[in-house]
């Protein structure tokens, strides 16, 4: 934090300061929400990656696959899978947008807004596509 001591020559008592409101009052633009969700979906997939590595071990070891299958096929397993797939597509689409920014594309204000709107819908599209692909 800052040095709040008063300049020399002023009273030795340092004035009382408080922190101004921030997250509590800021009206975050859509882009900031997408950015936050990019982070959350990324964190979720750190867990997902752990799970995927575990499943790969189950397949390699040849033991416990029926149990894993049962867990994935249970109602909760299905819900979790669909959410995970949606989160992955979300992170994918938002990440693609970030890559474009890094190359210097898409900084014009309308493009930023349309792009931010597109991310959740692209993720939905990807999830639906995968769904129909799997039949």
């Amino acid at each position: 934090m800052n040095d709040h001591s008063p300049p020399e020559g002023m009273s030795a008592q340092s004035p009382r300061r408080v922190l101004s409101p921030h997250l509590q009052v800021y009206r975050l633009p859509l882009n900031a929400w997408i950015s936050l969700l990019h982070r959350i979906t990324g964190l979720l997939w750190c867990l997902g990656l752990l799970g995927a590595t575990g499943l790969l071990w189950v397949v390699a070891a040849g033991q416990g696959w029926p149990a894993a299958q049962a867990a994935l096929g249970s109602p909760w397993g299905r819900v979790a899978s669909i959410l995970a797939i949606y989160a992955l597509w979300f992170h994918w689409a938002s990440g693609l947008r970030h890559l474009l920014f890094d190359f210097g594309f898409g900084f014009a204000a309308p493009v930023v807004r349309v792009g931010a709107w597109a991310v959740p819908w692209v993720a939905l599209l990807g999830t639906g596509l995968l769904w129909s692909w799997m039949g």
Partner: peptide, 28 residues
């Protein structure tokens, strides 16, 4: 790594998305 995953992730999702319903031997 993001650029690599941009390609690999959809490939994997479409290839192994239904792995849960596959027999162990087919999967291997």
């Amino acid at each position: 790594s993001a650029a690599l995953l941009l390609v690999l992730v959809p490939w994997l999702m479409f290839s192994l998305g239904s792995a849960g319903g596959m027999e162990l031997d087919d999967l291997r």
